[in-house]
């Protein structure tokens, strides 16, 4: 009997990661339900009124913004935190002792979280259309889809990087929360950034990939445009972030948690 091929293995790993996700109610809640709650909250607060500086309605603005937040959260947080906890529990070490190639293990995580991100985005946009009557345009859907794929790939790579640099699962939770939430505010996902916002806000936000994800995705849902709305500059910038994060994540990745107990407490360096 030969070893199974790459495709069946990747499919099996993806199914396994998705199964774990859906059997962890807290993760499923924060990824799929919590962003929807924000949408309903914003909808109740601001309704379908217009944002004067931007000339679009609040819901037309918030729905794609929260979809981006969901997608980033589904990949970045789930991969970063989930993988770090698996290292705490020795699961990564067990996996490394099997003939499963490391990249298929990580690939399963990335594909599963991308599918979950897609679910959360479709859910968000669907609710936006059905409940708040936001506008979507067939013309711009290819750009929205490509932006989604590039953005989730970028944030999946960043999740891998967080898993690589976090000594524990708790540290990974702290790192993802302390980065994603403030960046979501800075990048105008929760509060629209207008010309009257302080300039430093945009300067800081423009370093990180979340504002580009937002800008490129929201461009596909702007009323009154005529083109396909591909934002190649933003896509390229996210791809650059993604590649750098992926390379560093692979380089720094550890399959075992740092030894910290017993006689090996004296360890200074360990390969």
């Amino acid at each position: 009997m030969a070893r199974p091929g790459t495709v069946p293995l990747l499919r099996q790993q993806t199914g396994y990661q998705a199964k774990i996700f859906f059997r962890t109610p807290i993760a499923a809640f924060f990824t799929l339900i919590f962003p929807l709650m924000l949408l309903f909250l914003f909808g109740a607060l601001f309704g379908t009124g217009e944002i004067p500086e931007l000339g679009i309605t609040f819901v037309q603005f918030f729905t794609p913004a929260l979809a981006v937040f969901s997608a980033a959260n589904a990949t970045f947080s789930n991969i970063g935190v989930g993988t770090a906890y698996q290292r705490d529990e020795g699961i990564l070490k067990r996996v490394r002792g099997t003939p499963l190639p490391a990249w298929i293990f990580m690939g399963g995580k990335i594909v599963a979280s991308t599918l979950i991100a897609a679910m959360s985005v479709v859910l968000m946009m669907g609710v936006g259309v059905l409940v708040y009557g936001i506008e979507v345009y067939p013309r711009t859907l290819p750009a929205a889809t490509v932006t989604f794929l590039v953005g989730t790939a970028c944030f999946a790579s960043l999740g891998l990087l967080v898993a690589a640099v976090s000594p524990t699962g708790n540290a990974a939770t702290a790192i993802t929360n302390a980065t994603l939430l403030p960046l979501a505010f800075l990048s105008g996902l929760f509060i629209p950034i207008t010309d009257s916002s302080p300039a430093w806000l945009t300067t800081v936000a423009d370093i990180f990939p979340l504002s580009y994800f937002h800008e490129a995705f929201a461009a596909a849902f702007l009323p009154g445009t005529t083109g396909t709305q591909f934002d190649w500059g933003s896509l390229g910038y996210m791809a650059l972030w993604g590649v750098v994060a992926l390379l560093l994540g692979i380089r720094w990745f550890k399959w075992e948690k740092p030894v910290s107990s017993g006689r090996r407490a004296k360890v200074k360096t360990q390969s």
Partner: peptide, 19 residues
């Protein structure tokens, strides 16, 4: 070490045997 608490015994044996 531990094994994923969310899986059943059969699922874990199938997945870890996969490769």
């Amino acid at each position: 070490t531990s094994v994923e608490a969310e899986l059943t015994v059969r699922e874990a044996l199938t997945i870890y045997g996969g490769a």
